[in-house]
């Protein structure tokens, strides 16, 4: 994940002090890494030859790993970089699904069907 998050605020507690641009940038990084990984996961799932539910489970597992990776990148303190934890966990989850299905189908067809 070539993600380079910037420090979006100083360590503060009570008032939210975010730099909007940095926050935007962080969200974009999340979005990009999720899309990227969903494409990779789709190709992988297709080549390995998952069918049916297994493939979707695979997608969820990959997304979970992504979440963990993103959290590790944020030093397990998402409050520093994002306005809520949900951002790290769920952003771009459904958007990636479409790409995943497409590339899954594509790779699966290329390798297994013909």
């Amino acid at each position: 994940m070539g993600s380079s998050e910037k420090r979006s605020k100083d360590v503060m507690s009570d008032i939210p002090t975010f730099s909007a641009e940095n926050l935007q940038n962080n969200l974009k990084v999340i979005q990009n890494s999720r899309t990227f990984l969903s494409i990779i996961a789709g190709v992988l799932a297709g080549i390995i030859g998952f069918t049916g539910l297994t493939g979707f489970v695979f997608y969820f597992v990959v997304m979970l790993i992504t979440s963990v990776g993103l959290m590790a990148k944020a030093g397990f303190s998402a409050d520093l970089y994002f306005d809520s934890w949900n951002r790290v966990l769920f952003d771009g989850f459904l958007g990636g699904l479409m790409s995943f299905v497409l590339f899954w189908t594509f790779a699966y067809d290329l390798v297994h069907i013909f």
Binding site: N32, T35, S38, I39, G95, G96, M98, S99, L102, T105
Partner: peptide, 21 residues
């Protein structure tokens, strides 16, 4: 089984992520 025309539609929606990358 997917027909070629429908594969076109699938591409149309699914490639959005790739383009944004």
């Amino acid at each position: 089984y997917v027909s070629s025309r429908s594969w076109y539609f699938l591409n149309l929606f699914g490639l959005r992520g790739l383009f944004s990358l």
